[in-house]
């Protein structure tokens, strides 16, 4: 069933498969701790740039997803594709675009 859905998604170029709630919790944990190690716990930046909504304005989803999955050559940003798929990365980008509470 899952496989069929996945295939369907690929064929429709569908990116919107929302991660399960368990997976969302894992991704939130990763964002806070692993991304936070360089971008800061509050995402105001550190070794890596700030990732607050204002900082991401004008940067398309595809660009950000690609940065997360593939990393940025010549910088300290590693590829995270071993830890997540495109849906996960899109979900992270959407979280980052929300104004933090």
């Amino acid at each position: 069933m899952k496989k069929t859905l996945l295939l369907l998604c690929i064929s429709l170029n569908c990116l919107a498969a929302e991660p399960t709630s368990v997976r969302q919790a894992e991704l939130r944990h990763l964002l806070k701790n692993d991304c936070g190690a360089c971008h800061g716990l509050t995402l105001k930046g550190g070794m890596g740039p700030a990732l607050l909504p204002d900082n991401l304005q004008g940067k398309p989803d595809e660009f950000l997803i690609n940065t997360i999955l593939q990393g940025r050559k010549g910088t300290a940003m590693p590829p995270w594709k071993a830890f997540m798929n495109t849906d996960d990365a899109l979900w992270l980008v959407r979280q980052l675009r929300k104004v933090p509470q």
Partner: peptide, 10 residues
């Protein structure tokens, strides 16, 4: 360079 692994934490 070609054998360098990604670095997930400095």
């Amino acid at each position: 360079p070609d054998e360098q692994l990604p670095i997930y934490k400095m």
